[in-house]
Design a protein around this nucleic acid. Structure first.
Length: 856
DNA sequence: CCGGAGGCGTTTTTT
DNA sequence: ACGCCTCCGG
């Protein structure tokens, strides 16, 4: 991504044919592999020409196929060079796939085509044009954590926390405004002058903008917003891109926000004659229309308003609803035939989404037949639910399904804990997409801070981070002195550190600063290379290795006793591997390209079809993906729809669309699971089945265990169990709570709390506390020894140590009963026993953790 | 200046 | 229940 050419590789600028004048039916006679095999609507979407095209693409209706064929069709018919095409996708992975498929359709030569996300495309433009508005090309891209760190400083400085401002709430408000293309100045004109809180917010916003600029940094929202700003403030720059991109295609258009919409608007403006004159290289006559303008690029958007699920980050459904009014001469093509799912799954999806009153009628259908019924299951708790998922995954796998054909969805990331625990125990390979991502881990951010600072030595957030990692005796005091010096002298942080003799530091601190500065300077030289001495820029892997070696970050982690630190050291080694891989895949691309790629990875980019693992993700991350078997978990009121959404206008409808997205990801098998109690913040509470379940026709769901069964059974059991117990904490008010069944709760929390209450009676408060602490410590140690997976439930922790199992051994499992080991595979803590149980048949168990004992 | 311990807020979804 | 942050003792 070092540079880009405005000319086609063939050397002929803006060439083949008169752009925009194609008649669309180029290959009307004779077979055309790009159109044959498509249904009439799809074919129309491929060959339609004109200023604007909206493809309303229902879930699974083959829109990716249509998009790739459309682009290939344009190129093959010589209506456009690849370099004249800009295709916007939702994730980097989707972009890579689309490029590959187009390559496949054309045989070769889709180079020069821009296929990327909004954010990547904008970074590319901004890096190229940064100097025009006071940035330099090596600018840092702040992720939300960096933004929050900056806001935290500003809020502290302004004492704004006393007015209830937090980095999070100020950040989300700023983000919302930026998505509307409102900057601090514009906002200050519309605000309520008499509200001190509003005035303070404007001050925060202003300082935030200033600090970003001083740091030579953009936040996520800036990437889009500043590009729009660039185009509006510099028509000559805009003209370069307006001229270059003759065909713009945008996927998932229903999830574009105002800033993204504005970007598209800017890019699809004609170039006026006065700008045409200033363009270099010179314009050919055939690029111009009769009035001397370069005509507007043709725009194709693909979307489905039923799948709009990003309103919370500013997505505006009106962009797609009003498209026809917005872009004169727009044609609309509807794709309703589904090629992905069975009819049962589609019927359920249609039934659910049909409850949204504010939509256009649309029905998905398939020619493929009904398929299996949807399976429903209600567990007593989220662990019960997770156990069902794990067992069912194993059954599917035994039935011949690859693990990578299976996905488990949930509404919130916190739901992964219970699922992971059961998957680990069942020895099912899985992968969590999104959540706490690799690049968000502290140790990774620490190491990345060095690389970022090399590219942008003006960035205080990054610099502050690397000063303290690893600990080297440079604390907040030293940092503040250096930062003041840096600002006063107008130099960058590395220079300020090199000149720390001019400040009065003690010898120890001074030495630490100088050796750090020396290392950074050396690394920066390596990164830049030296063209005069024929020295190429150093590979990113070498830079990273230098940093890790000199700082001894890995060694220091290994020296600690905490097993978590071993995992951190491994993560750093993994990072080196990632960098090396980047160097191989994009030789000579350079440090900035690496940093950009890392900043813009999306959750779904991690998906690897060949990994052979079950995929866990939120339903948001699942958008655009498909799997043979899909589990939607936590289908409960308060979770799906989420509690937070019920008060928001349109909140429920958006949740319903989310459910719709989830359902329509499934090709063959769909499971809907829930639990009748769920632990939230540690407290167990009763969960009700989601309203969305009632919207699915009854006969479609095969309930293995219905919500009704569990409530009645669990209720009876739990009442007997908890009869003397009162509500909440104190157990003394017993019996006062037996009015309705809905207030019963299960699980161990009741047991624990009554034990805690009775403790003071038999001793003093102190000893009870000590005992509790000891228990907690023991649990922690056991967990660490057991491989350290998160959120093990206390009392459930197991460690079978080095239990020896051999084929033929009899074992007893807490849930499955007795069985016989048929084989043992794997090694060490990952040893897996394959066993046949008398009651439930074949199961795989992780020897170290499974609740089993060996029978003699 | 650094590490541990206790206190507090946290969870809706993401580029 | 957990992790982050702050406060306190070396």
């Amino acid at each position: 991504m070092s540079d880009f050419e405005l000319l086609d590789p063939s050397g002929i600028p803006y060439g083949p044919g008169a752009a925009g004048a194609g008649d669309g039916g180029a290959a009307a006679n004779g077979p055309d592999p790009l159109v044959d095999g498509l249904n009439p609507a799809q074919a129309r979407a491929v060959v339609a020409r004109g200023p604007a095209l909206l493809i309303v693409a229902g879930a699974g209706s083959g829109k990716t196929r249509v998009l790739t064929h459309r682009i290939a069709h344009l190129i093959r018919n010589r209506e456009a060079w690849p370099s004249q095409i800009l295709a916007i996708t939702f994730t980097n992975k989707a972009a890579a796939e689309m490029r590959e498929r187009i390559d496949g359709l054309l045989g070769s030569g889709a180079e020069g085509m821009w296929v990327s996300t909004f954010h990547s495309a904008c970074v590319r433009i901004l890096r190229r044009e940064a100097e025009r508005f006071g940035y330099v090309s090596g600018f840092t891209i702040y992720d939300s954590a960096d933004s929050r760190a900056l806001l935290k400083r500003i809020i502290k400085e302004l004492d704004a926390d006393t007015y209830g401002f937090t980095p999070a709430n100020a950040g989300s408000k700023i983000s919302r405004l930026k998505n509307e293309l409102t900057d601090a100045d514009a906002y200050s004109k519309t605000m309520n002058e008499s509200d001190p809180r509003d005035r303070l917010f404007v001050e925060i916003f202003k300082q935030y903008e200033q600090e970003l600029r001083r740091a030579n940094a953009f936040d996520f929202d800036d990437l889009i917003g500043q590009t729009v700003h660039l185009f509006r403030a510099h028509p000559d720059v805009a003209a370069i891109y307006q001229r270059r991109f003759r065909h713009i295609l945008v996927d998932e258009y229903q999830d574009t926000n105002h800033a993204q919409y504005s970007l598209i608007r800017e890019l699809t403006r004609p170039v006026e004659p006065e700008e045409v004159e200033r363009l270099v290289p010179p314009i050919r006559d055939r690029e111009l229309d009769a009035s001397g303008r370069i005509p507007a690029a043709s725009l194709t958007v693909v979307g489905d308003s039923d799948q709009s699920i990003y309103a919370f980050r500013g997505a505006d459904i009106r962009n797609i609803v009003e498209f026809e009014r917005d872009f004169a001469g727009a044609e609309v093509v509807k794709l309703e035939q589904n090629y992905r799912s069975t009819q049962n799954i589609l019927t359920a999806a249609n039934a659910v989404i049909g409850n949204n009153f504010d939509r256009q009628e649309k029905n998905l259908w398939t020619a493929e037949g009904d398929g299996e019924r949807i399976v429903g299951f209600t567990g007593y708790s989220q662990h019960d639910e997770a156990r069902f998922v794990a067992e069912e995954v194993e059954d599917l796998h035994r039935a011949g399904l690859n693990y990578s054909d299976i996905a488990v969805f949930y509404r919130t990331n916190s739901q992964t804990r219970a699922l992971e625990e059961l998957l680990i125990r069942s020895a099912i390979p899985y992968r969590v997409l999104g959540g706490t991502k690799f690049y968000e881990r502290a140790e990774i951010k620490d190491a990345m801070a060095y690389l970022t600072s090399i590219a942008n030595p003006y960035d205080p957030i990054t610099w502050s981070r690397l000063l303290g990692a690893p600990k080297r005796g440079i604390g907040p005091m030293a940092e503040a002195h250096l930062a003041n010096f840096q600002e006063a002298q107008g130099i960058n942080f590395h220079e300020a550190m090199l000149r720390c003799d001019e400040l009065s530091f003690g010898p120890k601190v001074r030495g630490a600063i100088l050796s750090l500065a020396e290392m950074l300077t050396r690394a920066a030289k390596m990164a830049a290379g030296d063209p005069e001495h024929d020295q190429a820029p150093a590979p990113v892997g070498d830079l990273l290795k230098l940093i890790l070696d000199e700082t001894e970050m890995i060694e220091k982690l290994r020296a600690k006793r905490d097993p978590q630190d071993d995992a951190r050291a491994e993560n750093l080694e993994e990072l080196v591997a990632v960098a090396r891989e980047f160097d191989v895949k994009q030789p000579g691309a350079g440090l900035i390209a690496f940093l950009t790629e890392v900043s813009l990875v999306a959750a779904a980019d991690d998906l690897d079809d060949s990994s052979g693992t079950v995929s866990l993700m939120t339903m948001h991350t699942a958008k655009g993906l498909e799997f043979k078997a899909v589990f939607i978990t936590g289908v409960e009121e308060g979770l799906l729809p989420h509690q937070m959404s019920v008060d928001e206008v349109g909140g429920i409808n958006e949740e319903r669309r989310l459910m719709y997205v989830g359902i329509t990801r499934a090709r063959e098998r769909l499971y809907l699971t829930l639990a009748s109690t769920r632990a939230v913040f540690g407290d167990v509470s009763v969960a009700m089945p989601s309203r969305f379940l009632q919207e699915i026709p009854e006969g479609l769901i095969d309930w293995r265990q219905s919500p009704g069964e569990v409530t009645s059974r669990g209720g009876t059991e739990s009442r007997a169990l908890n009869a003397p117990r009162g509500s909440g904490y104190g157990g003394s008010g017993s019996g006062s709570r037996s009015r309705t069944d809905s207030s019963v709760s299960f699980g161990s929390s009741g047991g624990y709390s009554s034990a805690a209450v009775s403790e003071p009676a038999s001793g003093n408060m102190q000893s009870a506390l000590d005992k509790w602490r000891e228990r907690k410590k023991a649990a922690k140690q056991a967990q660490a020894a057991g491989g350290g997976f998160p959120n093990t439930i206390m009392g459930n922790v197991r460690d079978n140590g080095d239990m020896e199992l051999a084929p033929g051994d009899r074992i007893r499992h807490d849930e499955y009963g007795e069985g016989r080991v048929s084989a043992v595979t794997g090694a060490g803590s990952k040893r897996i026993a394959h066993a046949v149980f008398d009651s439930v048949g074949e199961r795989k168990l992780l020897v170290k953790l499974a609740p089993i004992e060996k029978l003699e």
